[in-house]
Design a protein around this nucleic acid. Structure first.
Length: 725
DNA sequence: ATAAAACGATTTTTT
DNA sequence: ATCGTTTTAT
């Protein structure tokens, strides 16, 4: 083990990063410059060459996925199977872990729970209702950014906002929000980090323990850190303990400014910390010269940036194609035909091919077209697994069981499945809760005890609900997590509710998601923070919000394993690479997005384009259209300004428009016709015959008898229905 | 209390 | 177009 050469196959700059001794480092690592490899080697170097204890190393990543990858690769490099005590994780999981230990000093309840942005949104809606403020004026988006801003500025209300009525109300909403979190024992994602920051600030003795321990701090994706995270790093760093920080980032790939990330933190670091050495990793091992030249030229239109220029030893490669499509259907078909031509005929794995887009809505036509051409694909993103309604409902039951005072969850499921507790009953429960300063649960108990406020029927419904929750809670004792979840889903009536209408495609998926959730429970418990193997429900419920996984991948046309065209937003593609990349919708208003038509945001859009382009290894195709349907309207497209910012000698224009006009009239505009008795084929259910047709606004609901004799209603626009010619 | 109809907004998304 | 929310009708 001691013989591994940690500098093997590295260029000079990379070697410098791995072996630089006892200095604060700022590593500006361009796309495809071997950043992760270098980070891993550096960690191994610290342990083997500088005799640092693995315990002294804190490595912070932007996502759990990245953390897992880092852990895995370090384990392989260090070639040991035992736990190595290196702390690798996100800011949030680090904060969570420490706050569970120091909850008392942090002023948190022992069983505090975490709320995600979805819960946060719901909570704000409820507060607006309670305060009778119109959420059109006080938009949820503004309120969330107000809350996050305040937390980023350590609750200092005086700094940013003027004293007008609007801001006074915002401030009131904020107080309500914080108060509500306190009562129901929950904290949001930002508060996690802020709480730990405060804990350290107010308890120097605790801070000292961790300052002494973490003498090597490495932060990946530094351009994505926000204010409070930066403040936190500064606090944890103590030069008197010889702490050394390595920050790795790329200001050109900063695409999360809208979420509060501050590229300026790179400059702050240079100013605030002593003895910082900057190392540029500019040699790219991923792309051809043409692709890199295009990326460099494009990003040079951003004026304020750390000047950095990617270069490569590889040859020019193919020219970048720019295809001018008639509309989004033509756009998708061009890609489908290309894939058929180059990937199918030559038998190249489809995983090497990615289709990237600015907005998720753009994936729909792609999806239809891939199905039409029988090309297997995977879509990343869209609605997150844990934000699906059926999962959220299950979570709400589980949370209410573990904390009766969780008002958010209480309100969410009080009438799911329907049990005759409507908004009037809820209003009364709320009224009583406000009158006596009770949570919704306590208020319900009060109402039941005093038999006041509600009539007999409603009283009875409420009693049934309260008893159900009590029964569910009793039932979990001594059982394993997946059993708890399964029984909660079944006993709560959720399973029955979704299963009842299982004939509909939607509910069929929901039941499947619930099954997946039950299975996932065990998997999640295995990913624990360090050695903490406590398998209790409370820990699990917080963890799944922190340790989100890639369950939200949608696979279709699954002919063979691991062979799908990859489809995702450009944001989601960050950190990945593909031989062949298509970027679609290169049009003003779409990319750059029309909401970003101001200088600051245009720069971020440009960085996004830069990220997209640099995903490609061998061949890149950019597509824009003449016309496009968007939100039900046809618009004339204007080519994206980014297309004009590419060097002429790297690109090749393709324009088949003339031939396409005839083709379109005959094919794309023709709508499918269905009739009773027609034989069809469905991608999941197989062969079937149409029994009944119900016409809706623009699509049709088909009742189909499948070969297994089951009868289902299927929406015709679900496309999995194929007409057999 | 619940179902149907009208209305309206509409980027990116991880923790 | 589509999804979520609010209003209106049963």
């Amino acid at each position: 083990m001691k013989n591994i050469n940690l500098l093997k196959n590295l260029n000079d700059k990379q070697k410098e990063v791995v072996s630089e001794s006892r200095k604060n480092l700022l590593i500006l690592a361009g796309a495809g410059s071997g950043k992760t490899l270098v980070l891993i080697r550096r960690i191994a170097w610290l342990i083997h060459k500088e005799n640092c204890s693995p315990k002294s190393i804190l490595a912070v990543t932007f996502t759990n996925k990245a953390a897992l990858e880092l852990k895995k690769r370090i384990k392989i490099l260090l070639n040991n199977n035992q736990k190595n005590n290196i702390w690798i994780g996100t800011f949030h999981s680090f904060a969570y872990y420490l706050l569970r230990i120091h909850y008392l000093e942090a002023g948190l309840p022992k069983n505090f729970q975490i709320i995600d942005s979805y819960d946060q949104k719901n909570l704000i809606k409820r507060i607006l209702k309670k305060m009778s403020l119109k959420d059109k004026i006080y938009s949820i988006k503004n309120i969330i950014s107000y809350i996050n801003n305040l937390k980023n500025n350590l609750y200092n209300k005086n700094i940013i906002y003027k004293n007008n009525l609007y801001n006074i109300n915002l401030s009131k909403i904020y107080d309500e929000y914080q108060n509500f979190c306190k009562i129901t024992e929950v904290i949001d994602f930002n508060e996690l980090i802020l709480c730990l920051y405060k804990l350290f600030l107010n308890n120097p003795n605790i801070l000292k323990i961790y300052q002494k321990r973490f003498k090597n701090i490495l932060i990946d994706e530094f351009q994505d850190t926000n204010d409070i995270q930066y403040k936190f790093i500064s606090l944890l760093y103590n030069k008197h303990y010889d702490t050394k920080i390595v920050l790795v980032g790329d200001d050109d790939q900063s695409i999360y400014g809208w979420r509060g990330a501050k590229i300026e933190n790179i400059n702050h670091f240079l100013k605030d910390f002593d003895n910082v050495k900057i190392i540029l990793l500019e040699q790219n091992y991923r792309s051809t010269s043409n692709i890199l030249n295009a990326a460099n030229k494009l990003i040079s239109y951003n004026e304020i940036r750390q000047k950095k220029k990617l270069w490569t030893n590889s040859d020019n490669g193919k020219l970048i194609s720019i295809y001018y499509a008639l509309n989004e259907f033509d756009e998708a078909e061009y890609i489908a035909k290309y894939i058929k031509k180059y990937f199918f005929k030559k038998n190249i794995k489809l995983n090497n091919c990615a289709i990237l887009y600015r907005n998720n809505v753009q994936s729909r036509v792609l999806e239809e077209t891939m199905l039409k051409f029988s090309i297997p694909y995977q879509i990343y993103g869209g609605i997150h697994f844990f934000q699906r309604n059926e999962i959220k409902n299950t979570l709400a039951y589980l949370r209410l069981i573990s904390n009766f005072n969780d008002d958010n969850s209480f309100e969410k499921i009080i009438n799911i499945p329907k049990r005759g507790i409507g908004c009037n009953t809820l209003k009364i429960i709320k009224f009583v809760s406000e009158k006596f300063f009770l949570t919704l649960w306590q208020s319900s108990i009060y109402i039941l005890k005093n038999k006041k406020y509600l009539n007999k029927i409603n009283l009875n419904s409420l009693k049934k609900f309260i008893n159900l929750i009590k029964k569910l809670k009793k039932n979990i004792i001594g059982k394993s997590l997946s059993i708890i979840i399964e029984e909660t889903i079944k006993n709560s009536g959720l399973w029955h509710m979704y299963n009842q209408n299982c004939l509909f495609e939607n509910n069929f998926n929901k039941i499947n998601n619930l099954k997946e959730f039950i299975n996932a429970a065990n998997h999640f418990m295995n990913i624990s923070f360090n050695d903490n193997k406590k398998n209790n429900l409370i820990d699990f419920l917080s963890k799944i919000l922190l340790l989100t996984d890639d369950i939200n991948v949608k696979k279709k046309n699954n002919n063979c394993d691991y062979n799908f065209v990859q489809m995702m937003t450009i944001h989601a593609s960050k950190g990945l690479e593909f031989s062949k990349v298509f970027i679609i919708g290169m049009e003003e208003g779409i990319f750059p997005n029309k909401i970003s038509f101001n200088e600051k945001n245009i720069n971020e859009e440009r960085r996004l384009a830069y990220v997209g382009i640099t995903r490609a290894k061998k061949k890149l195709t950019l597509i824009y259209t003449k016309k496009r349907y968007l939100y039900g309207k046809e618009i004339n497209s204007i080519p994206s300004r980014f297309l004009n910012e590419l060097p002429e000698n790297c690109i090749k224009k393709i324009n088949y428009l003339k031939d396409k006009n005839i083709y379109l009239k005959n094919d794309v505009l023709k709508k499918k016709k269905y009739f009773i008795g027609q034989n069809i084929y469905h991608k999941i259910f197989g062969k079937g015959i149409i029994l009944n047709i119900e016409t809706l606004k623009d699509n049709k609901k088909l009742q189909i008898k499948f070969s297994n004799k089951k009868i289902r209603w299927i929406m015709s626009n679900y496309i999995q229905t194929y007409v057999i010619k």
